[in-house]
Design a binder for these strands. Sequence first.
RNA 1: GCCACUUUAGCGUAGCUGGUAGCGCAUUUCAUUCGUAAUGAAAGGGUCGCCGGUUCGAAUCCGGCAAGUGGCUCCA
Length: 644
Amino acid sequence: MIKITFPDGTVREYEKGVSSLDIAKSISEGLARKILAANINGQVRDISRPVNEDATLQLLTWNDKDGKSTFWHSSAHLMAEAVESLFPGVKFWVGPAIDNGFYYDMDLEDKKMNEEDLQRLEKKMNELARQNNSYTRKEISKSEAIQYFANKNDPYKLDLIQGLHDGEITFYSQGNFTDLCRGPHIASTGIIKAIKLTSIAGAYWKGDEKNKMLTRVYGITFPSQKELDEYLLMVEEAKKRDHRKLGKELGIYTMDDDVGQGLIMWMPNGTVIIEELEKLAKETENEAGYKRVVTPHIAKESMYITSGHLPYYADSMYPPMEMDGEKYYLKSMNCPHHHKIYAAEPKSYRDLPYRIAEYGTVYRYEQSGELFGLMRVRCLHMNDAHIYCTKEQFNEEFRAVNDMYLKYFKIFGIEKYVMRLSLHSPDKLGVKYVNEPELWKETEIMVRKVLMESNIPYVEVMDEAAFYGPKIDVQIFSAIGREFTLATNQVDFSQGRSFKLEYTDQSNKSETPLIIHRAPLGTHERFIGFLLEQYAGKFPLWLAPIQVKVLPISDKFIDYAKTISQQLKNADIRAEVDDRQEKIGKKIRDTELMRVPYMLVVGEKEMSENNVAVRRQGKGDAGVKKMDEFLNEIKQEIKDRRAE
RNA sequence: GCCACUUUAGCGUAGCUGGUAGCGCAUUUCAUUCGUAAUGAAAGGGUCGCCGGUUCGAAUCCGGCAAGUGGCUCCA
C-alpha cells in the first residue's frame, strides 16, 4: 500500500500502482469525469499513469492552470492530426499550450493555408474529437525515435530528438497521429467539445529571424460550447476598449500617410491630456528636487559614437542628415544631451545628486511590422530624467524613483502591472551588454535590494537589461493582450565613463557618478494609449478633455448656458455648450458617448434660480444644485486628481 | 523586416460567379423649441488605397507598391 497526501492535508492509502483516475473515482464519479491531469509530487502527469510510491497528489481540472494547459496541449495534438489529414506531408515543429489556447508550428513547404482552411480544420478536429480517441503514451529508445521520424522525413522532430537523452523519450499517439512529446495529455479527445482556430501567422523556426519562417496556427478549445461563446464575447468586449478604436472615437490622435508611419499627431482632445500629464510630472519632479532642461532634437554623429549607440543601434535610428560634411542624427534617446548638460559645469560632490528632467521628443525607426497604434510609434515624448549620484546616494535615489512610480500608479488607479527586474545575460557580455562583469553583479544586487526593501512584488528576468545596466521595468498588457513596458527605472554604470563625467569628491579626487535613467510616466504615446484602455475612454475628471458640457433644454436657454460655461472657464475648467437644435435626450446621448464627466442640463427651472441640473457620465441624474455649490465641488474634485 | 489577411464617402459597412455603386451614423438646409441615452424631411458627399495588366467592359480577375490588422523577430 502507498500513502497519498491531498492538497488539504488528508492522507489516504491506495494499492501500489493505482492511477490518478482511480483515485479520483474513489472520491467521486463527478470528479473522475472532470479531471484532466494530476500533479504528482510536483510533476504534472497523465491521469492513467500508475503511482508506485507515497506521493502528494493534486487532481487537476479545468479550473487549474495546469489542467487547462494539458487540455490545450492535447488540443494542439488534435489540430496536428487534422492538419496532417488535410495537408499530407506537413512537417511539425512544436505545439505548446499558451496563456489563451495553443498553437502548432509547421512547415507546409509549397502548400499554403488560408482562413478557409481554418474552417475545414475546425470541422476535421470536431470529427476527430467525436471519435473520442485515447491519448496513449509510449516510452521509446532514441534510435527507434530517430528511425520513426527519419521514415516520416521530418527534419524538425529529428532536430528535437538530437537534444534528448536515450531513456527519456516518449511518443504520444491519438487516432492516426503520433508525436514526439513529453506529455502529459488528457485521457481522450472526446472531452474537447468546442474548438476555435483563431489565426494563421508566420513564426521563425526557433525564434530566429535568420531561420526559415514556419506557419503557426493558433487555436483555443473548451470543454463546452458555452465557455467558447463566453470567451469570444470577452474578446469582442476587449476590442471595444482598444485604444486605437477609442482614440479615433474620442478625437485623441490621428495619423496620416503623408506624415509617415508611426508618427502621431495629437488632436485637441489628446493634447489636453498631454498637458495635464506634463503638469503632474512637473509638479511631482519639482517637489522631488529635479531641475528642468530643454535639448534639441538632433545631434552630431560623434555624440552617438561616444554614447556607444552607434553603430549598434544605427538600424533603429532615422538615417543621418548631412550638412557641411557633418552627419546629424535625430535623437533616439535624451541621455547623451543630458550628459552634456551635466558636463557643462564642473561638479563637486556637493552638487550631487544632480537631477535633470525633460519631456524629451525622440525618434526611433522601428520596423514597420512592429508599429502598433499609440503603443509602438516612431516619434515619442518621454517623461525622461537623469539622476547623477554617488554610489552611496544610489540606494536612496533609486528608491525615491520607485516611490514616485507607486505614487503615480495610485493617482491613475493602475493595478494590473508586473514589476520586472531586468538583468543582463552573462554570455552576452561584450555583445549586447557592456563588458563589466563585476559592475553588473554589483549594480544588480543594488537594484534588487531596493525592490526587496520596498516590499514590492517583482519578477526577475534575464537578458532584458539595458546595454549600460540593470533596470526595473513596469510591464502592462494592452486590451488585446500584448505586453509592453510602461515605465522604466534604469541604472547606468557605463555612460558616465564614456562621456567622461566627473565630480570632485571630499578628498579632492575625481570620481565618475552613477546615473539613473527613469521614465515613470513612460512616453505620452504609450501612457495615454494605456490610459485609454485602462479607463475605457472614461478619463477621470482632471484628465478629461472636456470636463463639463452644458446642455440647454432649448435655444431659449443658450444664453444662460453660456454664462454657466463662462463661469466654469473662468475657474480653468474645460467647459462647452451644446447649442445644437436637438432634443435634450439627443444631447445627453452624444455627450455620454463622448465620455464627458459632467453634464449640466439647464432650462426654465434652473435659469430662474441660478441652478444647474447635474448629470454624471455613466451614472445618470445627480440632482439640481446651486451653480456656486457645483463649482466648488468640481474644483475640489479636479484638485484631488482622484482615479475613479 | 518576415508570414498571412484586409483596404468601398469623415466613421461603420452592403455589393454572388466582371456590365462604372447602395445603407446607417455624421455633415448642410428647412421645420420643430423640446426636461435626462437617438424629432422629422430634404440635400450634398465616393475616379471603390495607388500604379500597371487581362477584357468590348474591372470595386469585382492578375501583378507590383503603400497603408492597416493578427502573429514572428525586434524594442537603448
